[in-house]
Every structure is written in structure tokens, then in C-alpha cells.
Amino acid sequence: MSDANMLSDEELLRYSRQILLQQIDVDGQLRLKQRSALIIGLGGLGSPVALYLAAAGIGTLHLADFDTVDLTNLQRQIAHDTTSIGVAKVDSAAARLKAINPHLNIRTYPQGLDADSLAAAVAAVDVVLDCSDNFSTRESVNAACVAAVKPLVSGAAIRLEGQLSVFDPRLPSSPCYHCLYGHGSEAELTCSEAGVVGPLVGMVGSLQALEALKLLAEFGEPLVGRLLLIDALSSKFRELRVKRDPACSVCGTTHD
């Protein structure tokens, strides 16, 4: 079994291009090896997130998705392939990730997560990546992250538009997901209803993975208090500042 307190010669070679970066170096790579992440959803966003985090040397990935692979998924969900149709997404993704990096430890949640199991799953990791496709799940994940004081990397994409932000309850100034979106809309469309282009979810998922690496290896400036908006039709990026709401019913300090 690999020693969590050191990098083997094989690991130093595997991650050498990453270790060359002064912002990461050996110390940052070792931090990645010692840390864990929970990915909620192994679809269009979760696929690139999982692939890049596994390749980067995260020690443990927790994968949560209750769904199975469908033919319509393959246009964008790059962790799966045609032979995976009908297979649980967590199992399909786990096999792919292990093929990329045999050092990776994986825990799967194929039944989805209810309130209690979600709270336990969030508390067990160092960072959570919300790659789900519905508002109610995002709200539940956000509340669990606030309660457990765990950073949340949240991404979304539909049609030709994407969004990305980081919510870090460890920081007093950080907003949470609810500060930004409030109660949302129960009529929110999904990709199966409105459509989405594959490279867009790949872009958002890749950026989510990058933000997670910054949080775990402790380098750079995570996207806290900022919302990145992506317009794929015109290839334009915009950034909005987001402040914490003192009256937020999830993370606020002034609500009853």
C-alpha cells in the first residue's frame, strides 16, 4: 500500500508536469494525495471533474449518482462509453478512473444520498463538487456543506450557457449557494428538456476540477465571492461579484 506521507518514484514521475509548477511542487502534490473529494453527479459535469481529479493525484474520490448510463448521455458524459449503457454511472466512472490512476481510492454511492447519508458523505471529505442537474439537490448539498463547514465547488450548464462559483463556509465573507440563488424555481429546466452542447459541460467541469485542485493543494485564488458566467455562443466570459447575505436562511447570521 502506498505511504500517504510520501510520494513514490512512480508518483513523482506520473505527476512530474504538475510538480514542476512552483505553485504546486512536491508539497502541493502530497497534499492532493492526502485529501479527498465528493462528486455529486457523474454526468456531463461530473465526468470531466472525476477524470481530471483522478489524473491529478487526488487520494480519494467519493462518487455519488443513482442513475445508470443511457445512450443519450454519451454525447457529453465522457467518463462513460457505449459498453457502459445500462451500468450504474458510479461503477462505469470508477472503472474508468482506476484505469487512469491505479493509486486512486474510490468510494461509491449508487443509491443516491438522503439527508442523513448526504451529511455523512460531506463530512467525510475535504471538498464537495456539485455536478447535479437540479435545484433541490444543489440546495441540499449547499446546506450540508454549510453545516459541515466544507468548501463547495458548484457548476451548472444548460443550452449554451454555463456558471461556476466556489462557496467556502470556512471564510466569514463567503456567500453560500442560497445567498446567490435564494429559493430558485421548481420549474427549472434540465438538459433533457432544454438541450446542451457537450464541450460546454466539459469546460465547466474542467474549471470545477481546477478550483478543487486550488482548494486542496492550497494555491491560487479560488472563485469565492465571484460567479463566472460563460456564453458559449459568443465565447464570452463575465464575472459577477457575490456577497454573503446576512439574512440568508442557510448561512446568515441575522435570521431567526
Rank of each mutant, 00 (worst) to 15 (best):
V26M: 02
M203S: 13
V90C: 11
A55D: 09
L152H: 03
F167N: 01
L74T: 01
D91R: 15
G59H: 02
I24N: 06
L228V: 08
A143I: 08
P246N: 06
L45H: 05
T190P: 08
T190M: 09
N73G: 00
P110K: 07
R17M: 03
K89N: 05
A187D: 13
N101P: 03
P110V: 12
R238M: 15
R159H: 08
D256V: 15
L74M: 01
P102I: 06
K98V: 11
E139L: 15
A79G: 13
K214P: 00
F167P: 02
I40S: 02
G198D: 06
F219N: 05
M6K: 06
L32K: 09
V141R: 09
L189Y: 01
L180C: 08
N105S: 14
H178P: 06
K236V: 12
E193L: 12
D65L: 08
R76I: 06
V166P: 03
T72N: 02
Q75I: 06
A247D: 12
A123Y: 11
Q22W: 03
C131A: 14
L118Q: 04
R238E: 10
A217E: 12
L63T: 09
T72C: 04
R238K: 15
P175V: 01
A4R: 13
Y109D: 02
L30S: 07
G252N: 03
D25P: 03
A187C: 11
S206E: 01
G28W: 01
P246A: 10
G225F: 08
S206H: 06
E11G: 07
V153D: 00
V201H: 13
V146F: 03
D116I: 11
L160I: 08
G220C: 02
A55S: 15
C176D: 07
A194R: 01
D130T: 09
Y15F: 10
L104V: 10
V242A: 14
M6E: 14
A217Q: 09
V166A: 06
V166K: 07
F135D: 13
D3W: 08
V125M: 03
G43N: 06
L210D: 08
A232T: 09
Q18L: 05
V204P: 04
L30E: 00
K89R: 13
S140V: 03
D3L: 11
L229E: 02
I39R: 05
E161D: 13
R107N: 14
S47K: 01
Q29V: 02
G57A: 05
V125L: 08
V149H: 14
V196R: 00
I78K: 05
G155A: 07
F66Q: 14
L213F: 04
L223I: 10
V69D: 07
G220Y: 01
H103L: 12
R107E: 14
K236C: 12
M203P: 00
G205Y: 08
L38V: 09
D130S: 04
E221N: 13
G57L: 01
L215S: 09
Y177F: 15
Q111E: 12
F219K: 05
S36K: 03
L45C: 00
K214R: 13
A95F: 12
D245L: 01
C191M: 00
S132P: 09
L216F: 07
Q34W: 03
V141Q: 12
T82Q: 15
R241C: 13
D256H: 12
A99C: 08
L7R: 07
C248K: 04
A99P: 02
L216N: 04
L227I: 11
H255Q: 14
